[in-house]
Amino acid sequence: MTDKTQYKVHKEPYYQPQGNEVALYEAAYRNRLPVMVKGPTGCGKSRFIEYMAWKLDKPLITVACNEDMTASDLVGRYLLEANGTRWLDGPLTTAARIGAICYLDEIVEARQDTTVVIHPLTDHRRTLPLDKKGELIEAHPDFQLVISYNPGYQSLMKDLKQSTKQRFTGFDFDYPDAQLETTILAKETGLDAATAGKLVKIGQTARNLKGHGLDEGISTRLLVYAATLIKDGVNPVEACQMALVRPITDDADIRETLDHAIDVTFV
């Protein structure tokens, strides 16, 4: 049996609720319903799950999904050893055994044949067949499956199958409103609220340009980066250019517009 405590979230993560998502999540968890969190990159999805795991006092196992991931990477595999073979549980199996919340981050990145292994865990069966090992695991009563996905990918190749989607309850995340986002930056980095407010403003300038040359606006994560740099003594204008503008676009007109927004915001 794997040690549960190593997966526990020990310190309360800072999470600023945007609505009543905390209560709704608790309800979903009470009934062990699978959860899907949707939203643009860097808007607090992972942080939310981490916080909920802490609040519910349950272990959290996070898997960052990628294109090369196979079903074995989730479920487990045999390892060859000098005197035979040994089975090693994958993270999903571990979570099902010990009763953890299993968070599959960016699930759309995984190949579809990988995604289907979660199906039996998400319906009333709550089981996980380990075909190779010839074992059928009954999920621990505390086990819950959470997936995240960013609908802004705008690629249908990366969209989830209906049959997968329809196994989850959903949370729609978006960038927080100006006031909340300011609070988040200030609490997260210790930056003063006035400067944090200015960063948020620049973030919104970029979000207004979405669809006019920008695919995604500036994420909360990038704003946190900028705030961190400023807190460390970097000149705000330079911090913004480096953390907010350079990463998101090469379109000269947009850069110039955002640079101007930075110039007139920080004096």
Binding site: N208, L209, H212, D253, E256, T257, A261
Partner: peptide, 13 residues
């Protein structure tokens, strides 16, 4: 012209 359009959209909506 485009920069001005982006300016009106981005900074002032």
């Amino acid at each position: 012209e485009r920069k001005l359009d982006l300016y009106l959209r981005g900074l002032w909506r």
